[in-house]
């Protein structure tokens, strides 16, 4: 099921209260907030109202808040051997193949 990924890029400060209402209805509370809504004409109509303020992409799956956070987190550059035995085996396997 496709979703619209909507990110608020520009604030609605100083714009009509209806614009604020649309943002509230979509669940956009502050700048750079991202929400996912299923592709439908009612959501598209809401986006048309605030198209100057947001960034919209069509994506296949919605991400939860935790998933978005995990996607932003950089690679720590290490792994704990005891905890991540699987990762280690994979890496060794890859290196073994390379050699």
């Amino acid at each position: 099921m496709p979703y619209f990924r909507i990110t608020l890029m520009r604030s609605a400060i100083g714009l009509p209260s209806k614009t604020h209402g649309v943002l509230a209805a979509l669940g956009l509370k502050k700048r750079m907030a991202t929400v996912y809504h299923p592709v439908s004409s009612s959501v598209a109509g809401q986006i048309m109202r605030i198209k100057e303020l947001v960034d919209v992409k069509e994506v296949e799956h919605a991400m939860t808040k935790d998933e978005m956070r995990a996607a932003r987190r950089p690679d720590p550059g290490y792994y704990v051997e005891k905890r991540d035995a699987k990762v280690r085996r994979e890496r060794e396997g890859v290196e073994g193949l390379a050699v």
């Binding site: 592709v39 439908s40 598209a44 986006i47 048309m48 198209k51 919209v56």
Partner: peptide, 21 residues
């Protein structure tokens, strides 16, 4: 803004919907 309108249009067309606005 042109890009956003195009995104909405293609996404709705893929669903078999269209929108007057």
């Amino acid at each position: 803004v042109d890009g956003i309108v195009a995104t909405l249009d293609t996404a709705l067309a893929r669903q078999g919907e269209s929108m007057k606005r």
